[in-house]
Design a binder for these strands. Structure first.
Lengths: 145, 145
DNA sequence: CCTGAAAACCGGTAAGC
DNA sequence: GCTTACCGGTTTTCAGG
């Protein structure tokens, strides 16, 4: 992971379909050198995936909510992760400091879809109650930099 | 935007570097047909970008927090958006239902960086107080579907 | 709007520095 | 570890249905 790798990552972030030669022209490397570095970055897990960013409205996933999870007793992060990964509406989630045990960011097609997803989140072991904040208007949405 | 387009988007989501021929083989179209559809999807803004998903630890952005904003009086979403867009640590944010006025998702290099970002968020007009939940362990992290 | 073919172009490998 | 060179495959364009 040197500076060259970081430049390559930056280029791929801007355009994941950029040719190796094009990237090389920017960072000052030959196409094959770039390829080997990209392969290594994928191999080592630095680059997790080549994807596209799609207009969320296309999916019809427009209703969002931030949900706090309050659990009884101890929470096993691994178990929580396993459960949450079965709910596709979960955009991101993490255990947190404060009175809540975890925060879950949901995105669903509509309000019933959100309610349904929340229902599935609630079956997590030891969930005492939840506290939801439905998003009225999205203010910021950046790439997961 | 028909079903074919949706299938193509699904394939590109799985691998943004997939060949047009390969995609065509899956969805039942020739390479050139796939290319024209992809071009059109980019043209019309359905596909916003071809990107890579990078291990966040690489950026050194490992400290995250969900922050609730409580404001005095009315909140102007546009003004809030303008302010939050000046804070690069803001990953996503939205005005919400419930006792809080907005939820802001922050990601910073370290705790001091998080504190600094929070400081900059707090200068938003009419902010009365904030309530932060620092992420202890990230459970889920999906593409911005 | 699709297919199929032809030309240009790029990715992947191998040899050499 | 990088570069140049080469071959095979893919992209891209275009004529035709």
């Amino acid at each position: 992971m040197d500076n060259l790798d970081r430049q390559i990552i930056e280029q791929l972030r801007l355009n994941a379909r950029a040719g190796y030669g094009d990237i090389g022209a920017v960072v000052g490397l030959s196409a094959s050198a770039v390829k080997r570095r990209v392969d290594r970055l994928v191999e080592t897990g630095v680059i997790r995936a080549f994807t596209i960013e799609v207009d969320p409205a296309v999916d019809g996933l427009v209703v969002e909510a931030y949900v706090e999870l309050f659990c009884r007793g101890t929470v096993a992060p691994d178990e929580l992760r396993r459960l949450l990964s079965t709910v596709p509406e979960v955009v991101d989630a993490g255990t947190v400091t404060g009175s809540a045990d975890a925060v879950v960011h949901l995105r669903a097609r509509d309000i019933p879809g959100l309610e349904d997803a929340l229902e599935r989140v609630r079956v997590a072991p030891n969930v005492d109650h939840t506290r939801s904040a439905i998003v009225l208007s999205r203010l910021i949405k950046r790439d997961p930099r």
